[in-house]
Design a protein around this nucleic acid. Structure first.
Lengths: 187, 187
DNA sequence: CTCTCTTTTTATCATTTGTAAAATTTTTTG
DNA sequence: CAAAAAATTTTACAAATGATAAAAAGAGAG
């Protein structure tokens, strides 16, 4: 997916603003398993995914918890760093070889301060992430693990073939064993 | 809490912008049990809570699911309406008599389009909500119900005295009976 | 205070999910 | 292809949670 198309996904931008944004974007490629964002840091870079899959996870007592998958067209930022300027709690790693558009957070911050269209574009971007997160929270609260798995299957079926099941299970809030049981029932 | 203080909670605003915002704000009081936001509508109003408690919930097969509590200083909006302009999935009702600051969504939208400081203020506001939602999602994914209850007790202890346990249970993603068991264990 | 209504707790049993370990399948590597 | 490593599934048992019904406690009205 080209950068123009990605930027437009969140909110339309007048040509001048879009060009101003793109002027600060460069392309990078990383192999599978590369750490894009590490917890405990104030992240200075954000990414747009041109191709590939990444996962965001957080440390927990019993291993790590995957709480987000990013794919083609998605933005990768440490929300905590980005919003509060404080060290984030999230790691992000590539699950496949990834082709990314890269941008310095500081550059984006400057654009927010000087270009009202970009500021509103950024507002919409965060808003859309918020809705997705809220919907996921609600589904965690009142749907069974099986329903959540079926939702995932119908919503983003490709994920199941591209991501190890241990991460899928974590994302669904269950153990790998429990996921395996659910898959067996469905078959 | 006064409106000035509430607005500053999210991001500092230059005096002119703050006044522009406040100029569109009026005060309203509602009794306990009043519906501030209804699902299936594009909401035209947003609120800041001067005093009182509200809850946001969504319809589900087995009754409603409380996914957010708002108290003094919080913003009440239908995120779905606000971000996407589409009918929202959330209801919001007062759990106590509430004193609110009220604003038309359309007025705020105009301010976003004309005042870059307000646009960035709105961006920060949404960002902070996003972080809170994301942290809650992570805690739903990997903490036990008992841990989530203890977190709630230490984080916002007043909530437990002001809100019926059925809503607390729903918020924690468990049944009222299960919450009662957890409370008994702790005692 | 007493009655009624609501909220909360308790008890029972069925179901789901977690833990740990082993078995199986798939993928990677030489 | 064969061996090794990784990923996935299966099994058995324990713990947590849900559903339902009933009892107890608390709140409000007359």
């Amino acid at each position: 997916m080209e950068i123009d198309e990605i930027l437009e996904r969140f909110h339309p931008l007048p040509p001048g603003s879009r060009e101003a944004l793109i002027a600060h974007v460069s392309e990078v490629k990383y192999p599978k398993g590369h750490a894009l964002i590490r917890s405990g840091r104030v992240e200075k870079t954000l990414y747009f995914i041109r191709s590939g899959i990444v996962r965001a996870y957080s440390d927990a007592d019993r291993g790590d918890v995957t709480f987000w998958f990013g794919k083609e067209g998605d933005v990768v930022i440490s929300m905590k760093s980005y919003v509060s300027g404080q060290p984030g709690y999230e790691h992000v790693e590539t699950l496949e070889a990834c082709d990314l558009y890269q941008m310095r957070a500081q550059d984006l911050e400057s654009l927010f301060a000087s270009d009202i269209h970009i500021a509103n574009w950024g507002r919409k971007l965060i808003g859309q992430e918020l809705i997705k997160t809220e919907e996921r929270l609600i589904s965690m609260q009142f749907k069974t693990a099986q329903q959540r798995y079926l939702d995932l299957m119908s919503g983003t079926p490709d994920l199941l073939h591209r991501v190890p099941l241990c991460h899928i299970a974590s994302y669904l809030g269950i153990t790998q064993v429990s996921l395996s049981r659910i898959r067996a029932e469905i078959r």
